[in-house]
Design a protein around this nucleic acid. Structure first.
Lengths: 340, 340
DNA sequence: TTGTACGCGTTATCAG
DNA sequence: CTGATAACGCGTACAA
């Protein structure tokens, strides 16, 4: 088989003895054209198996109908769920979604962003890497009039919209839930306090305590990361202290899991002796023997909303730099681990 | 701020009083150019913040440096891991990765594929949806000289390369493992037998039995799907039968999980009374109270290999229709659930 | 080594 | 309603 020749509007214009311009008009639903020619064009286009060349169109119109997404790792459930939301919302509007990973590193993030900018993308969705402090690369994108939408992890940059969850509320409802179960000494596993999200979850924790008139005990607050080991260590530390907790609010499901494992190992029952609530609603939480209560960040919805914000932005007035800040409400998924 | 003007090779050619062609040559490392002009061009390109317009380049060269990936759902761990592998392998070669979802439906799959073809993609990676029987859309892609690479779920189509795991071996090593643990009556949870992958896992199961001289008992084979409920039902059915199993090989981790839950519920101990092995090594398996042994399909590697096959194909001789079939070896991850 | 001129496939503008 | 023509930004024969 010979190399397949691509059929262009020019080919079909020749066959029909009309101009390429007319063919283009017919194909694009331009109103200034007789119904007869339009139908004819449509029919023969079909017959000749014509496919529009989006490249040429994009070059001409200066719009690629493609967006880029940058996440730390695409195989992390939270991120892939967000991407799913973005894709589902945008595919119906004719957009393509390019993905790339920063591997949780600012340098990669910059490279990926520049590569995306290079390819004349119509917009960028991103969750910044943990060590991204400087936002110059993002400001550059904005200068070039490429809309940027942050989700989950954001920087404060004028002109950039964002979709995040209310981390304060996440901390609050978790703690409130535990307090309502009758817990009095609620430990808090808190992640890297340099990050705003953990600060806010922590604030929510304290606010709930205060609201219930329960004293805040600094000893019950332990710094953890998102690893199982970190939860194990935290339990070891706490159970050597002077105030033994009857509940744990962990800002990471993994730390919560480590805690549960260690508690069981030393003969403490969940939830009878200690209630546990995690954060993120990782898929594994519901499959545990005593399923882990957790705060769901509604990533799928987050992706959809982010996509909607983007669409509003590109369809709205070009002159105005729109900046929209959406804050989603997290949901507490109460399961066995806090079911007293 | 005015709308930012894009700088083209023409702009820099004017500034330097040379032709755009020369600029193009300098930028593309064409050897027929004096070092002096090249350096000059490079420098001013940098200064003027020149960005190559990939669209125009793609239109000219007929190559977009973009590939498409179609999976049923992007947020399923297996698929996102494969995509991660593809992205990581291809990003260093200057390719962009567009993702789209078939939602496990053949009709969507066809639409997504056509959309991708429309956008002049350089290649397509896909895992067909469960109800895809007809391969016309894929044959069309091949006719248009767009390479297609299947991973995991494939159709038999001439000219299409594929990367899959050895499902027979997966079934074999699981069963073999259980037999070596001393199990005699190994139940088999088998998925939709219309799909080749389940047929092969089943064949592996039978082969291992035969190899160990253990009789095959049809009663021990139960049809399941990939849901927890399905595993629960399977246990209920089996434990009412005349041969009570002392092990279960499930071709789905979810069915295995359901089985474990139900067995525990009726007072049967894992692994003392019954050993269990699942399939896919879903993330949750290692977090269970008694972690589930499972067959790992090495999805990340699968993605990387698929990408390599693609690169070979596009860099190889264009005339020859290369068709490469890669079969990866699955690994049994032995955990508590089969640790006797 | 460099410049000229054309074409990739489309759409927008301007006549007619 | 339709046709001719230019332009989007780049790369490349061909000529100089």
């Amino acid at each position: 088989m010979r190399k397949r020749e691509k059929v262009t509007i020019y080919d079909i214009s020749k066959k029909l003895n009309i101009s390429a311009a007319t063919v283009s008009r017919a194909l694009n639903g331009n109103p200034n054209i007789s119904e007869k020619t339009r139908d004819l064009v449509m029919k023969t286009a079909e017959e000749m198996n014509y496919k529009q060349n989006r490249l040429a169109q994009a070059l001409k119109k200066g719009k690629t109908n493609t967006v880029g997404v940058i996440v730390p790792y695409i195989d992390r459930n939270f991120f892939s769920s967000v991407i799913r939301g973005i894709e589902e919302e945008l595919t119906g509007h004719g957009y393509y979604v390019i993905i790339s990973q920063s591997h949780e590193d600012a340098k990669n993030e910059v490279n990926q962003l520049n590569a995306l900018l290079n390819t004349q993308i119509d917009g960028i969705f991103m969750s910044v890497s943990k060590n991204t402090r400087n936002g110059d690369h993002i400001r550059k994108a904005i200068e070039e009039k490429t809309p940027v939408i942050f989700f989950d992890r954001k920087l404060d940059i004028p002109g950039v919209s964002s979709v995040v969850i209310d981390d304060f509320k996440g901390g609050y409802i978790s703690t409130d839930h535990l307090l309502k179960k009758g817990c009095k000494h609620i430990a808090c596993f808190i992640g890297n306090m340099e990050l705003e999200i953990y600060q806010n979850r922590f604030k929510g924790y304290k606010a709930a305590l205060e609201h219930h008139g329960i004293p805040y005990i600094e000893e019950l607050v332990v710094q953890t990361n998102s690893k199982i080991e970190s939860g194990i260590e935290a339990v070891n530390k706490l159970w050597q202290g002077s105030v033994i907790p009857d509940a744990i609010f962990a800002t990471s499901d993994y730390a919560a899991l480590g805690a549960i494992q260690q508690l069981k190992a030393i003969g403490i029952r969940i939830p009878e002796d200690v209630c546990v609530v995690g954060f993120s609603n990782e898929p594994f939480t519901k499959y545990l023997d005593s399923p882990l209560s957790s705060v769901d960040q509604t990533p799928h919805l987050m992706g959809k909303i982010a996509a909607q914000v983007f669409l509003e932005q590109v369809n709205g007035s070009k002159e105005l730099t729109i900046e929209k800040k959406v804050v989603l409400s997290p949901e507490l998924i109460a399961r066995e681990s806090s079911n007293r």
